[in-house]
Amino acid sequence: MAKIKQPVMLTGEALLQKVKELENLSKEEKAKACGYSTVTKNGQDRVNLMKFYNALMDADGLNLDGKGNGKGGRSASYRVSVQKNGNLLIGSAYTQQMGLQPGDELEIRLGRKHIHLRQVGADDVE
């Protein structure tokens, strides 16, 4: 019995381009067209969506493992939301970047479209 040759699984930019070309197809059809399917022993097509999704995320530069850049976690977006109680929460990524320690005091300056945080006692450079 001759083995059926499996299509090559596309990765990287080639995968992204092919998915864009196939935008009108279902996710299963896209995965199959990009090589993410196998034929089982009884001749059935099996689409491996998980491998397909992982390859898409890798191609797009999205890393859910927290590996790769050595840091892990999220990166600072420089955006915060007002919480239901009216507070603004400044995350540790920002306090670490500013070199702040527990107990440090900040002065809040309201600008026309910005809120400026300045460490009390730090030299003002404007």
Rank of each mutant, 00 (worst) to 15 (best):
V19C: 04
T40G: 10
I108K: 02
G103K: 04
S81Q: 11
S37A: 15
V19E: 05
L16E: 04
Q6E: 14
E29I: 01
Y78C: 09
I115A: 03
L56R: 01
L64M: 13
Q97A: 15
Q119C: 02
E28Q: 13
L88Y: 08
K5T: 13
K84R: 10
N24C: 06
L106E: 01
Y94P: 01
D124G: 12
L62H: 08
L22M: 06
D60I: 03
M98C: 10
K84N: 14
E105V: 00
K27D: 14
L89R: 07
K71I: 10
G61R: 02
N87P: 06
D45N: 13
T95P: 03
E107F: 07
A31R: 05
F52A: 03
V125D: 11
K113L: 10
K51S: 15
D124N: 13
E28S: 15
M50Y: 13
Q96K: 13
R118M: 08
I90W: 07
S81H: 07
K3D: 08
A122C: 03
A33W: 01
G73A: 08
A55Y: 00
K71Q: 13
R46G: 03
E107N: 09
K32N: 06
A59C: 06
E28I: 14
V19N: 02
A31D: 02
D124F: 12
Y78H: 14
N85W: 04
A55C: 00
N87M: 13
D45F: 00
Q119S: 00
L25T: 09
Q119Y: 11
V82Y: 01
V80L: 10
S81T: 14
D104K: 03
N24R: 15
D60W: 05
G99P: 08
G68W: 02
A14V: 12
M98K: 04
G91L: 05
R118W: 01
E126W: 10
L25N: 11
D58R: 05
N42C: 12
D60H: 12
Q97S: 14
A33P: 00
A59I: 05
L89D: 00
N69D: 12
Q83H: 10
K20E: 06
L106Y: 04
A33F: 04
L89H: 11
M57R: 13
F52E: 05
L22C: 03
N48S: 08
L16I: 10
Y36T: 00
V82D: 10
L64C: 13
Q101D: 11
Q44V: 14
S75G: 15
L106D: 08
L117R: 00
L62C: 12
E21W: 05
V125M: 09
D58S: 12
K18N: 07
D123M: 07
D58N: 06
K20H: 04
M1N: 12
L110N: 07
C34E: 00
L110V: 10
D65Y: 09
L100I: 04
N85G: 06
K67P: 01
G12Y: 00
M9I: 01
L56I: 02
K113E: 14
Q101C: 07
A55D: 08
S77I: 14
Q83D: 15
Q44S: 15
R109V: 11
G70K: 10
Q119I: 02
T11H: 09
H114C: 07
Q96C: 04
E28F: 11
E13W: 07
M9Q: 15
M1R: 06
P7D: 09
K30I: 13
A76H: 13
K30L: 00
A2H: 11
G12I: 03
H116S: 05
D104G: 00
G103V: 00
